[in-house]
Design a protein around this nucleic acid. Structure first.
Lengths: 264, 264
DNA sequence: AAGGATGTGAAAACCCTGTGAACCGCGTTC
DNA sequence: GAACGCGGTTCACAGGGTTTTCACATCCTT
């Protein structure tokens, strides 16, 4: 499972329009979620934004700068704080860093460097902060627990192998979205899928079988012909199941055909 | 692994005598344990020093600078790396930070600022693991006492060596959670696991053997094929003999039976 | 109906873990 | 100073679980 950088949520607190515009461009290009604030937001608002880091120019806060910095660092020990100011002195930088800032950059500065420093700060924070562990993902009767590398149905382990589990996780995390085979392969195997490789199909088969054994009344993985697969827990209606002429795949009841097997 | 909170252990890799002398004075005054190296030490030597951070001037390494930086950051993800160089370009700083450096300072610089930045980096790394040390951890018949670097079963010492104890501690602290081999190695040995290293397996074997000798009725360490190990005390049910009764592939047999290769 | 795509079952290839023992480096003992 | 005990590392092999590969059946779109 190779997560790329994992997108970063960032807030920029500054009023220097030139700097902001250039930086925002780069942030957009890199796909970071960001927001620009023209004044110091209350700490609880920052909390609500669920940020990874903030870039702060203390000059927009005036004399309140130090106390604001202190408050933010104290209240949000998990937040990365990068100060970016013009004309700072050594004493100021030392004071800021001791107060809890993670880095202090001098303007003018290159947006690429700002981003690299934010990355460095967030990287180190993530490494040490054992992730809050997003609670177990639940869907239908299924429970996917990433801390166990395993899925459970009514408390029982589904007995998935590592690959099977990662496949399920990739699909389940995209709940409701169709993912193409190439993407699935890329995300689970970590490299590009060779032409004609059937691994994904085979693993979907194994997954379906194991899930079905413990959760017979539900269907979780749906096929989208010519595209890929989609995860979506759906209770099987007794009446329209088990169509005799298609003993193998009742997961695609004819009634829903246009919905199930449709290449958009 | 767990360093005390106060003092910082630092290595300075530089040959700039003026800079070194001034910095060393401050470090002494602050009571930091430090060492000056005039060339890049092999990674395993750095490991042995149990450092919190290094301050590195890549110019002493010549063209090897980048690869050295890469190697150090890759092998010692827990080490704080502060690069301190003269005449660096934005591109160089970005590259260094992306390679894994935590900060990049330009010379000339004030020693106080260097120290403040080192503190900031180390603080980031520590902030999360302030495990105020809970009392002795008890699991099944086992009692893990970190204050004695030893585990006990019904009052008797299990006779663990240091590595064995640290392995047990890492696993036991994560009670119930599967930990991957790479993570285990990283946390116990302190640096990245080389591909193909079997140390973890060997130590798990030793641990299991010693635990079993004094607590025959319990199993503590469970294997998760293709992933790693999980600590969880489980009483052995007399009725269920260790008969590897691998019946005719029930596909999802693992309800709660196999004890050695147990994947929940 | 043709042709490409997916479902299936099983064999073959590959990789992981358990295990015992040799091998090293170090500090202690004789 | 050499032998010895200890802890840690590296090897090699066995056994078996996992992944990949195949061949064929079935299904969908054109």
């Amino acid at each position: 499972m190779a997560f790329s950088t994992g997108t970063i949520r960032l807030a920029v607190i500054d009023t220097d329009t030139g700097f902001i515009r250039v930086l925002a461009n780069r942030l957009d290009a890199a796909g970071w979620e960001h927001r620009v604030l023209s004044s110091g937001a209350p700490v609880d608002e920052l909390v609500a934004m669920k940020l990874n880091a903030i870039v702060l120019d203390p000059s927009v806060l005036g004399p309140e700068g130090w106390s604001y910095l202190d408050r933010v660092c104290g209240m949000l020990p998990g937040l990365g704080v990068i100060v970016c100011s013009a004309n700072s002195t050594v004493a100021q930088r030392v004071r800021g860093l001791r107060l809890g800032a993670d880095d202090w950059i001098n303007k003018p500065c290159h947006p690429e460097e700002v981003m690299a420093r934010v990355e460095a700060v967030v990287r180190r924070r993530r490494r040490s902060q054992p992730q809050p562990e997003s609670g177990p993902l639940v869907a239908g009767e299924l429970e996917v627990r990433s801390d166990q590398f395993q899925a459970f149905i009514s408390g029982q382990s589904v007995g998935l192998t590592r690959r099977e589990f990662e496949l399920l996780q990739v699909l389940a995390e995209a709940r409701g979205t169709v993912i193409e085979r190439e993407d699935i392969y890329q995300r689970v195997w970590g490299y590009a899928m060779a032409h004609g490789d059937r691994s994904v199909d085979v693993f979907v088969r194994k997954l379906r079988r194991k899930l079905e054994r413990l959760s017979a009344g539900w269907r979780y993985i749906h096929t989208h012909f010519g595209v890929g697969y989609r995860f979506e827990p759906e209770a099987v209606v007794p009446g329209e199941a088990e169509i005799p002429d298609r003993a193998i795949e009742p997961a695609v009841p004819m009634v829903e055909e246009s919905e199930e097997i449709h290449r958009t």
